[in-house]
Amino acid sequence: MTPVIECQQLNVRFRTDGGAVTAVSDLDFNLNAGECLGVVGESGSGKSQTFLAMFGLLAHNGTATGSIRYRGTELLNAPRSTLDGLRGNRLAMIFQDALSGLTPTMRIGDQMSEVLMRHQGLSRRNARARVIEALEVVRIADPEQRFSAYPFEMSGGMRQRVMIAMATLCRPEVLIADEPTTALDVTVQAQVLRLLNGLKNHTGTSLVLITHDLGVVAGLCDRVLIMYAGRAVELGPVRDIFRRPAHPYTQALLRSMPSLIIDPGKDLPVIPGQPPDLENLPAGCPFASRCLHTQDDCTTERPRLRAVGPDHSRACHLPA
């Protein structure tokens, strides 16, 4: 399979008053054409910063090194002109908070039309027709009327669907969805997930779904990247991740998650302790202090991602 996105040795660091914070370290992964890659991790795992770096959207005190290429074009620290031609056009992103992702003082139809006028040179009138069509696809009732609504006049679920419609206007090859349903209620979450699933199946868009919810991943993704403290700890096909998780963190995460299929009579096994402090990362495996199977080299040597099966790898010193 041809990768659309190739990420190699990505490092993201932030300068802060308290010293340097490493948000992402030595991350390697590919996104293949037409697949949905789930990126799973808790807060501070670096899952969002990875893709903000790819879009050139890091905060001013952040620096990224390494390489992220889109079909051979380097995106990391690329000139503004390169990024502007790709962002919103070939590469699109949906954010968790749809209210801050939309311009509050512009009618949603106008901000959506702008994307088409800019990237595809459409006239205002043609853009309007395409926007209304896109709003229909995401099941916004009365798209003609909603065209002239402001973001604050819509509910959270509607705004998230507008964001999806806007991100997909130019039929992007890659769509990054950063926690697209976290702020939504379950019944609205189901609507948005159904929409993303349709998009993946019908348009061939490659999708990255950043989430902390393994339930969402199971329903939508083909492959899963599990991140912990800025590093990839496991990468593999979705079925392997759920049926044969290879990294102790993935195993513990799956066991400790309340879901509708666990036995509520039994206590959930928990992951003890807290995630590590990103300012003082331990020398060895970042999960070592919470891991149930720690051996000597876990605290001294950082484990690299190594294959444990076809297309399935983990970063762990334990014998497989």
Binding site: L193, N197, G215, I261
Partner: peptide, 13 residues
């Protein structure tokens, strides 16, 4: 039924 279940063999649709 809207709650995502962490089982890849149960497609949401």
């Amino acid at each position: 039924s809207a709650v995502p279940v962490p089982d890849p063999d149960r497609p949401p649709a």
